[in-house]
Design a protein around this nucleic acid. Structure first.
Length: 669
DNA sequence: GATTCAGATATTTTT
DNA sequence: TATCTGAATC
């Protein structure tokens, strides 16, 4: 506690009115939250069970828990303390009040990628039914939920024809989800807030239950999340939110950074504390960041400062094309490593969009530098994982028609479209799920005997397994499932050996994760609990977290938020990339500037920026301009490593020679 | 029901 | 340019 600076201390010890902590980059905001929780428990004798801290990512939640455990030691019993993501908290609320919302126990979360499939079906009759329409409708529905708007509100406010189409699709979609005893990810926030609005006494019970509410990365909350926060906070006397409007980079996803300002209106007795001392970056880096962000109009003015010394100048590297840019970034890293004896993990290369990682990957591989790429396509986007997840969902929630349809022919069971149509028809007539209908005596009458038999066999098999799912050990059940459907054999039958092995490996990873999660838990968990945890938790994320190996970090600027690295490279600092073309066209260049700001403030000791003068775009080479943001950097703190005087061939040669000398040096070691 | 070929499509994506 | 998806055909 003694090591906290004065505003940090103020924030930690503040009680009695709602508190907004405006925490600049690297100013120790997570620390303030953990210290505050510790202080509440140790100095104010608050029971851990009365405290809930909310974050956006599982990783942030995990880290916060770890830090608390460290800070308080084993002696303190943290039993009952809630540190969770918005979505897990929503899930917890939904579980307890499923009945009030027309859901049955074991309800499942629909695979986000199946949403478009469902909507496509819903919109089948629409005259302009195409992929674009479906995607637009999906975005609208998600947008409405993020705004906290119900079906009737959407129907009421829909003005343009697409909005009207979307609103009626919204109605259908919700009906479908309810029939499947499913919710989507947005519902995890939206439904609890609807519930609290409609049933104030339930809301009151949660206010009493949560008491001390702390929210991290508050600038990233959307309208529905804020609504939920407000409902849970009650009079707000025990509410603490921490955020930084300069780091708001998710407005395109519905985040409303103005929620920071709205807080002062909704809670007139709001106390505001600013954290402006940065403990991460050198003064130069911070000055550069301040210069850049000063070009944005800001609601809350902050001036970050640091006493970590001047530090190195910021280097700007122009390269002739994207290949040379990658080469210079990689050789820059290697040079740095030899000069400062730093390890791979001290470096991060950040970029605006995922495809930029490719050239870097090629070069890093060429130079045999270990690296890890965060982000890109998720573990849960893989077909095999979605298959297994669909099986698990069906086991825990037999009404889940989406899951049923996904796996009924995986592996092949000889059930064609017409059989499924008949089955769906009968299910509709009976008003029940397709899986339930497998046991219907009438099925034999409407289907050919082979199909009927196959379906029945499937029904029996899954029925037996779902008994095990509820009674027995969840892991045994999963293994039995994979065995019963001969999933591994199916993989080998449906793809090349190497591919099949890789996919099977992923499935095993999933099972391993389930096992780990099961073991970690203090009490026995049921399969449904594990399955929702799987959907809300990124298994790969956790996996990556654990293998703390020494590798150069590659990630998007978005993915870098909340992280720090001794040495940071930002590549592709060009017009049309950073700021991104689409953002400029949409007029959201301020968010792009914040994105650049986030990138800069990740750096502790050195920062290198690069851009290419030409770049391959969809095949042909186009000219590129350095980013407007580069001119916003303080001239006295940057150094341009221009090689303008050299021809591209010569440049390539010097680059090669450079790499060769470094390689030679390394081999000698 | 599987394979192949043509066409679309490339910004970020905490859950 | 490379990759992925869906439709058409065998």
């Amino acid at each position: 506690m003694s090591t906290l600076n004065s505003p940090q201390k103020q924030a930690v010890e503040h009680l009695g009115s709602p508190l907004l902590v405006l925490a600049g980059a690297g100013s120790g905001k997570t620390r303030v939250i953990t210290e505050k929780i510790s202080w509440l428990i140790q100095n104010r004798a608050v029971s851990p069970a009365d405290i809930t801290a909310v974050t956006f990512t599982n990783k942030a939640a995990r880290e916060m828990k770890e830090r608390l455990q460290q800070r308080l030691g084993e002696a303190e019993n943290l039993q009952g303390l809630t540190v969770s993501t918005f979505h897990s908290l929503g899930m917890k609320i939904l579980r307890l009040h499923a009945k009030d919302l027309g859901l049955r126990s074991g309800f499942s979360i629909i695979d986000p990628r199946d949403v478009t499939t469902v909507l496509s079906e819903t919109l089948r009759a629409d005259p302009i039914h195409n992929k674009d329409l479906v995607n637009q409708v999906a975005r609208r529905i998600s947008g409405w939920k993020n705004l906290g708007l119900s079906v009737s509100e959407a129907l009421q406010f829909a003005e343009d024809p697409i909005a009207q189409t979307a609103a009626s699709a919204y109605k259908e979609y919700q009906r479908y989800l309810l029939a499947c005893n499913s919710v989507d990810l947005d519902d995890l926030i939206f439904l609890p807030s609807q519930l609290f609005r409609d049933q104030p006494e339930i809301c009151r019970s949660w206010q009493l239950r949560i008491r001390y509410l702390l929210v991290d990365e508050y600038q990233d909350t959307n309208a529905a999340q804020y609504q939920l926060v407000k409902q849970l906070a009650g009079d707000g006397k025990r509410l603490t939110v921490v955020g930084d409007d300069d780091q708001s980079i998710y407005a395109w996803r519905g985040a409303q950074p103005q929620n920071l300002a709205v807080l002062a209106e909704d809670f007139p007795n709001l106390t505001v504390t600013k954290l402006e001392q940065n403990y991460r970056s050198s003064a130069r880096i911070l000055k550069a960041a301040n210069h850049v962000i000063a070009n944005n109009p800001r609601h809350f003015d902050k001036s970050l400062w640091s006493d970590l010394g001047h530090g190195e100048v910021i280097r700007i590297i122009p390269a002739d094309n994207e290949k040379l840019e990658a080469e210079r970034a990689v050789s820059g890293i290697m040079r740095h490593q030899f000069k400062h004896r730093s390890s791979h993990g001290d470096f991060a290369i950040l970029y605006r969009s995922n495809h930029q990682a490719r050239e870097l990957e090629i070069k890093l591989r060429e130079m045999r530098i270990p690296y890890k790429i965060s982000g890109g396509s998720s573990f849960f986007d893989r077909g095999e994982i979605r298959d297994v997840m669909a099986y698990l969902r069906l086991l825990t929630n037999p009404s889940d028609d989406t899951a049923f349809l996904r796996i009924i022919n995986t592996p092949r069971r000889g059930i064609g479209a017409s059989s499924l149509e008949k089955l769906a028809g009968l299910a509709g007539k009976r008003g029940q799920g397709m899986f339930h209908t497998l046991a219907d005596p009438e099925l034999h009458l409407i289907l050919q005997s082979r199909q009927a038999k196959s379906l029945q066999a499937f029904g029996n098999e899954m029925g037996a397994l779902s008994k095990r799912a509820t009674d027995g050990d969840p892991i045994d059940c999963v293994n039995a499932l994979l065995e019963a459907v001969e999933y591994q054999r199916w993989l080998h039958k449906s793809c090349e050996t190497a591919d099949a092995d890789r996919r099977w490996e992923n499935v095993r990873l999933l099972v391993d994760w389930l096992e780990a999660a099961d073991r970690q838990a203090t009490e026995d968990r049921t399969l449904p609990e594990l399955v929702t945890e799987l959907i809300l938790n990124d298994a790969l994320d956790q996996q990556k977290d654990e293998e703390n190996v020494d590798q150069v970090n590659l990630m998007t600027l978005h993915a870098a938020k909340g992280l720090e690295f001794p040495h940071v490279f930002i590549v592709g600092v060009e017009e049309n990339i950073l700021p991104h073309k689409v953002s400029v066209e949409e007029g959201s260049d301020e968010e792009e500037r914040r994105l650049f700001y986030v990138g800069i403030t990740r750096a502790m000791r050195s920062l290198t920026l690069s851009y290419a003068r030409r770049r391959k775009r969809f095949g042909d080479s186009v000219e590129c301009e350095p980013s407007r943001f580069l001119q916003e950097l303080p001239a006295e703190d940057v150094e341009w490593e221009d090689q303008l005087s050299l021809s591209p061939e010569q440049q390539q040669d010097t680059g090669r020679a450079h790499l060769a000398s470094i390689r030679a040096l390394r081999n000698r070691q």
